[in-house]
Design a protein around this nucleic acid. Sequence first.
DNA 1: GCAAGATAGTACGGTCACCTTACTATCTTT
DNA 2: AAAGATAGTAAGGTGACCGTACTATCTTGC
Lengths: 141, 141
Amino acid sequence: MSGIPLPALFTQAKDVTLAELHRRLEEEGFEGIRYSHGAVFRFIDAGGSRLTVLAERSGLSKQALGEVVTELERQGYVERTTDPDDQRAKIIRLTERGMQAQAAAARLLGDIERRWAQHLGRDRIAGMRLALEEVIRFEKG
Amino acid sequence: MSGIPLPALFTQAKDVTLAELHRRLEEEGFEGIRYSHGAVFRFIDAGGSRLTVLAERSGLSKQALGEVVTELERQGYVERTTDPDDQRAKIIRLTERGMQAQAAAARLLGDIERRWAQHLGRDRIAGMRLALEEVIRFEKG
DNA sequence: GCAAGATAGTACGGTCACCTTACTATCTTT
DNA sequence: AAAGATAGTAAGGTGACCGTACTATCTTGC
């Protein structure tokens, strides 16, 4: 009950993890990737997704997601094409480089978690993950 | 290694915890308290602290902390007085209401953690806390 | 005992990650 | 074909920060 307050604890954990991830992404040549870009990399379908779908899945507004897409587009990670079946809609699709970045991020996050497991023990990290997931479900549900 | 990416997991945990904390603070009449205000409530000394000290302890810039203090001052949670020993310096001090809010926040965070312990087991929550702390130290040190 | 530098706090402007309220273009339904 | 729904964009706002620059005051070295 004492010690660092829970919100601070979670925030610091997020911050150190992200710092490490972004540092390593840059080392591998994937520059300019920021936290918010995860909303696209995490939720996009293999064949591309509509902006509205990405917004729904990530819980962001369409505008917020549109900005993220615009930035990723400028950096060459995604491309926007008009949906041939619906002229209003755009399909967001990862470029080759985008797919590489997506794969690198997943791999690096796995590396980070493995490194933690080596230091604290596999079961303690698995337990932390599970406890976090249950706590989130508990507060949300 | 699979499942929700670590940064998303930590972010969600922070968000649900803060949402619950702020909801309950409002229920008790402590309105207008936001995430960033914790920088003051967490680090201020019983007899008051200088702005610079609070900035150092919280890791924020003096300007950022100054804004937070200004807001808390407007809402009656803290007051600024000039340090009699140093005319440049101001001493930030919790008002009576500020102390009540600080105590309420600590108590409510304790309640939240106890509720989790009842649901998942005391040792699992303690284990989660410890794992988080060690992971943070590991990445930082 | 006074100029030179350090320190406390404020002002201004910028960035990032979002939001809401409008709007245009296109589709769907009646 | 008009009325309404939907896809995306535009414009402007907020919260939580940052850096650079400034004023007022204190401390030190000579």
